[in-house]
Design a binder for these strands. Structure first.
Lengths: 211, 211, 211, 211
DNA sequence: CATGAATGAGTTTTCATTCAT
DNA sequence: TATGAATGAAAACTCATTCAT
């Protein structure tokens, strides 16, 4: 399995759809389903989201759904992998591997901030479905790979004595948890979900884990 | 509404049941339902948990469920309130209001640690259901009261210049999020859910928010 | 089978109950059930009336119901027979068999009027349940006996050439139907359910059937 | 609201179905449900009729029922309106408004006779459900319009001194009640439900109400 | 490919009835 | 006798999925 496998069927680029844009356009329907699914799964979870509700929001017929996805289970996995990959790509592309830990942390946090501000719903979706029993092994694998990469980076920083000498998985949990905590409160409108808020929190979280 | 209202029907103590323990015992069945519900709601969420699955795990007949609870919705609210109240009671009882902020933080974190070690499933349940649309206003109110109390304490500490001068709701989100993050990874067996882990994290989180 | 059989269990007079009047009094509970049943069966029919609703209106415990009645089916039969017998008794007692047909008709109509004014709900109940499949043969028999008596009287009047020479069952249906029609409209408040209304209708109905 | 509104969804004609007749035919299934419902509601009332019994008699799957009707309640309203409208249409179409009262009465009675002979079950159904709490306001409205029209006609006839000077609602109740009474006894096989029987009764009923 | 009618298993809930206390 | 907890069968209704058109 490659590090960031691209789903054969669901991550392709459909040139036809980009050109035409007609309502009978295949890509549009598939995208409409994925968009509806993201929102509904994020709001009500896997079991609370019905195929009829997805189909209605996507404005397609019930049968059409099964031309694009085998089942509700496959759908949630496709959505999960799509956005989990997106986050992974964002963080890993041109990762400043040779910069000092403080700089690496800032860059990573900044990239997550970009994502959170652009796609708060997607982040909430990923959080909510993290350990669902309906996620297949491929989806689980992506999740683990991301975590493993994070832990590896933290271990390197620890080797350079930049971080507290604790279990790196705990440090990861603290930083991840804090970030998600802010985004959630942001979605709930209890804090302002802005770049300022998140970059102020960056300082906090660095101080939490620094040596 | 009082700060921590006790559900009239579902927090009483049934002396009869404590004494007898027979299979027809009322208290046992109600407790069996609550226990099964806690586990299943925690594992599969509200919509993923069926009444048949609850009654099966509680080893009662389908009809019996409705002697104790009006509906699946009421059940989740009763469970939620029971444990949310328990957490609130734990943190608020004899809160060291006149101690310095550092001490208050440690005590609060320690109390949460007690709870997390004794009741990790219950904590996961509370997290998962935080904002479910099936929670009634009373349940939501308990949640808000707990948050408000936390924010108030943080504001006082900020007034004493013990904490960073940021939105206290953000500080709250960081600390809460970090704590929950560790517990979750603990449940997933990716970190050791021990007193040592959590008390080490306490130091991290204090450094995250201290001035 | 006697003409107006008295239910062994449910038409007796309970001297004890008349004297005491305590809430533990057997008769009171039985009467409470019968009263509740009459109202509910009349309002919502047999299938629309639940034992829990009867039990609640009678202010007794669920189990108590089954001390007095074997089943919901038996209950409806007991109520039916009680009031059907009452109507029959009213009409047949001292029937002026040797008076002229016009007088017999007036007397019968007057007696029905008494009953309708005193017990409109009971009359509606009897109408509604006339042919329910839950009525046992004994209840059906009472209904038939009443009808047969009416037809016999009409035949005698026809023999005296006082009535139109039609199928007496049709004449019966006309008079009965008209009477019930007025009572129903009375219950619906679309006509005034008074002695005047009913006695005016008596003239109409006589003219309908007279030779 | 028009006088005899046609249900948008349930009175259309499906040309496709008339032509094909295949088992997947839409119209057939909907009609099968309506037919089964009419019979069962007529036999056992609203509460005594279960959706399973309807789908069994209609020979469709349980889920299919809900493609055609939102609920059992909607179903009974659709059936009620369909036949109540039919009766109203029959009586009102080309009503001989400028004929003398005696003629108007005969025509109306004759039309009702047509209906009763062709659709005795439908008449019984309408009678039984007249005042059910499950009938919606639209269904109630149709019923009231029919009654009001009848009362108005009777008032005009009274103005012409053709009828007894009584409350016209009482005259209406007498005639209606008598008609229904005969049909019911006809269904019970206690009288012959024929044109002769009903036209003989027409004379009776006219004499009941004439001045 | 797109549709939506059709399906039947499964969900929440109610109810008639029983029985231990 | 009176109670009400307990039961399991059955009701109303929903849903994921299929398939003929």
């Amino acid at each position: 399995m490659t590090l960031f496998p691209v789903d054969k069927r669901h991550n392709r680029t459909n040139i036809h759809s980009i050109v035409s844009g007609r309502p009978t356009d295949t890509r549009n329907r598939e995208e409409a389903i994925l968009k509806a699914a993201l929102e509904l799964f994020g709001e009500r979870g896997f079991y609370g989201t019905t195929v009829p509700s997805v189909v209605e929001r996507a404005e397609i017929a019930a049968g059409t759904f099964y031309h694009y996805f085998e089942s509700k289970e496959q759908l949630v996995n496709v959505v999960y992998r799509r956005w989990k990959s997106e986050v992974a790509r964002l963080i890993l592309t041109d990762f400043p591997a040779d910069h000092p830990p403080r700089e690496q942390f800032r860059v990573t946090w900044e990239r997550m901030t970009e994502f959170a501000l652009a796609h708060p719903k997607e982040l909430a979706f990923l959080e909510l479905h993290q350990h669902g029993s309906y996620l297949d092994s491929e989806s689980q694998a992506i999740e683990n790979q991301t975590l493993d990469f994070g832990v590896m980076m933290l271990q390197r920083a620890q080797a350079a004595q930049a971080l507290k000498p604790m279990d790196p998985a705990v440090l990861m949990a603290i930083v991840n948890g804090a970030f998600i905590g802010i985004v959630r409160q942001g979605i709930e409108k209890r804090v302002a979900l802005t770049r300022e808020t998140l970059m102020a929190a960056e300082v906090c979280c660095w101080e939490a884990i620094r040596a």
